[in-house]
Design a binder for these strands. Structure first.
Lengths: 211, 211
DNA sequence: TTTACTTATTGTATTATTTACACTATATTT
DNA sequence: AAATATAGTGTAAATAATACAATAAGTAAA
């Protein structure tokens, strides 16, 4: 079982990687993963992977795909059921396990993982991209309070597409998932920024049932 | 591994079921399934299931989901990676294995399968429904030549929604995946019907990349 | 052969959604 | 007070989706 755990930090999407501790590909960069034990459900392994690597198991997770090619692991036949998850570094109170060398890495072409783990990331990103078209995204990636610009940046990053600010704002507001927070964000220069939060019930509803 | 194999026959969607040959739930109605052997890839088991039950392995298949709850099988922990497929009974030259009691059953509320196989069907139908919104459907379910009414019926059935004939035809033709066949279908009463076929290249293209 | 009936096919007007596009507001710095 | 940086806003045009009913082309019956 492998997990693509994404965050959105410093205006970039990143994925959690660890150093592989055993053969094959010992010491290579891989997605956090764990073998399923006989008495475990899939969810339980996810929880273990999370606990071990970030010390937090309360994270948004979706099943991705089962990878089952015969020779994907050179040592023997391993079927890997992969998941993806979305977190926010501060909000979710992450403690990276440095024994595993757990690190969030930028998603660029230089990121090369062992096994078929790059494929997993690609597939996860595709899935997220598709999902964004009929369900809201952001609650798991952003801090509790955020600006429209941050939300636009996130959408822009995951959909690899620039938005027109005015149209973006209108569309998001029409989704009816945000509320303005009383507070406001002071900036070094320029106008203050309105802060928003997700309306939990509405977000939940659209997240489960689509728009 | 289990397979939801759908067809669209006599204006109804149907799914392939078999009688379970072993415990637990011996003799119960189930989806065709098979245990994965050590030296098999997922695709190979799919092929086996297909060969065994319909004597044809050249079928459109997509991975659905891994079902991994601890007690989904009362006898022990079994993780089931499910697939769904779409076929056409005549075109695909199906020979049902009656030793397994392989039969296509209408998808109605009376259809009750053992294990979590009903869940699998539900999920597969949801997936297909979603997929239809950005990719074409029909090539695998319809005969090579078909009428607009048949295609509309198929869409209507899988999306559980009535269409306005005029709007439906316009939308489908705008998709640019059909071509008229020279022949025409004679009916007992009323006007002759134009026959269409899918343009293989265009269909393939939209099927892989979406509209 | 004319009329009734059956089924297939077609077009237009309205509404809703999406896109394109540039200036004003509010704060800080000099 | 002027320059600069960032946030925030409205309107018009184009495109897509929806609602809606009459005509065309055949068979069966009178």
């Amino acid at each position: 079982m492998s997990l693509c755990l994404f965050c959105y930090n410093e205006n970039e999407k990143k994925v959690l990687t660890v150093r592989n501790k055993s053969l094959p590909f010992k010491n290579a960069l891989v997605l956090p993963n764990k073998l399923l034990k006989y008495n475990q459900s899939l969810d339980e392994v996810c929880t273990e992977i999370l606990t071990e690597n970030i010390r937090n198991q309360e994270v948004y997770i979706e099943q991705l795909n089962a990878f089952g090619k015969l020779y994907r692991n050179p040592i023997g036949r391993v079927i890997d059921i992969s998941f993806y998850g979305l977190i926010n570094l501060e909000k979710d109170n992450i403690v990276l396990n440095h024994e595993n060398n757990a690190k969030f890495k930028k998603l660029d072409s230089k990121l090369e993982l062992a096994f078929d783990h790059n494929e997993m990331i690609e597939l996860a990103l595709k899935r997220i991209k598709r999902r964004m078209k009929y369900r809201p995204l952001g609650k798991n990636l952003l801090p509790n309070e955020f600006t429209m610009n941050e939300l636009e940046g996130l959408y822009s990053s995951f959909l690899s597409k620039k938005f027109d600010t005015r149209n973006f704002r209108r569309r998001i507001l029409e989704m009816d998932i945000l509320r303005e927070v009383k507070k406001v964000q002071r900036n070094k220069r320029g106008r203050k920024t309105i802060l928003y939060e997700f309306d939990p019930k509405k977000y939940e509803n659209y997240s489960n049932n689509g728009f």
